Amino acid sequence: MTVLQTLSGKQIVVAVTGSIAAVEVVRLIHALRRRGAAVQAVMSPAATGIVTPDALTYASGRETITRLSGMVEHVMYCGDEGTADLLLVAPCTANTLSKIACGIDDTPVTTFASTALGSGIPLLIVPAMHHSMYRHPAILANLDAVRRWGAGIVEPRIEEGKAKIAGNDEIVLRCERAVLGSPLKGKKVLITSGPCREPVDDVRILTTRSSGQMGRALALQAFRLGADVTVVHRDTFPCMNNIHVETAADMSSAVLSYLSENNGADIYISAAAISDLAPVMMNGKIPSGKAVRLELEPLPKLLDRVMQDYAPLTIAFKLGRRPEKKAKAMFDHGVAMVLMNAPETMGRETGEYVRLDKLGTERLQGSKDEIAARVWEEILRVHL
């Protein structure tokens, strides 16, 4: 599957400190490079006792920096005229965090960090330590200090008494967000995604082939571009507010509650395969071995309610093969953009869509990540 080259042309300095979580950095560097980034590794002396510099040299394709030389590498990459787009300190120990907060430069990593903070190059810190250390008042104060100076913090996972390094998917997303300019900064984006599951009896359900991959791709791209993203669905996506629902009624309730409590949304994307019909639920388990008739009742249209009461910039999805005719009615109700797809697109990693708005029609095909990126390009170009 094609990986979206979100970091193409970007240079990321990965600064590694002496946490056991340093063993994860080779995979992290590979993940950044798969997104198109050029990666330069820098290590503290303590980090070299956990992971050999040769491993990071192999992963990055560049000689790892373990000491500063007459080439003044910290200025070359993170100075006022530096070539780096981002300094990522991952993992960051309590010791290194405290030195950064106090302006102490006694390792290549801390010197790179001071230089980046002084020049304004984005700095992203990924803490990893024992949970008791992470709760230390000085550590909490130092986290607040570097946040005030503009550094981003990728919060650790609190498990087994440890503040473990965040997962690579989350770290990469935060890197993408840090370097892509945040054109959606300050925008509240609400997305419905995936299938609904309507109960037939205590065991069975009615649902669709929808996998939620399109909704996921749209949500992740919105986060990369700086939005405050909320997704109403059954899954859990990193870096955003996930509201878990099962049925169409649950989804409607969650969407309307969010809009009411948050004074609406700037952008609403209705990417979920919301049930049009729901069976009249039967108590217990329907006996097997004989024919059963299901009574299906129509459900109210969530999109109509959202448009009527809140009228955000709305992007809707519609199954069908005659897009222009079906989209016109949606435009008349205020929808800004419609994406049409055939049923066979559901559940696949790739897709073929027709994107329509009042300015024209565009046929999109490729991975759903690629299609989502193109949709957001058009939203930013025309509708914001």
Results as ranks from 00 to 15, higher is better:
I371C: 00
A327P: 05
D369F: 08
Y310R: 04
A327S: 15
K301D: 15
A327W: 00
A373G: 08
K325G: 13
V354I: 13
E324M: 11
P323Q: 12
V354K: 04
F317S: 05
E349L: 13
E344R: 10
P300V: 05
F331N: 09
K358Y: 02
R363I: 12
R321S: 15
L302I: 10
A336C: 09
L313A: 01
E362L: 09
V338Q: 02
K318L: 02
E344V: 11
R348C: 11
F317M: 04
V354E: 11
L319F: 08
K368N: 04
L294Y: 03
L302Y: 01
T361P: 08
V306D: 08
M337T: 08
K368I: 09
M307E: 13
I371E: 02
E370W: 01
R374Y: 11
A316D: 07
G351H: 00
F317Q: 01
F317Y: 02
D304T: 10
D369S: 12
L294W: 01
Q365K: 14
G351Y: 00
R348E: 13
R374P: 09
S367D: 07
V338N: 03
F331G: 05
P343Y: 08
R355I: 01
V338W: 05
L339V: 07
Y310L: 04
R355D: 09
R363A: 12
K301W: 07
E295D: 14
D357K: 03
V335R: 03
E344Q: 12
L359A: 15
V335K: 04
E324I: 14
R363F: 12
L296R: 06
I371H: 02
L356F: 03
F317E: 01
D332N: 15
K328A: 15
T345N: 13
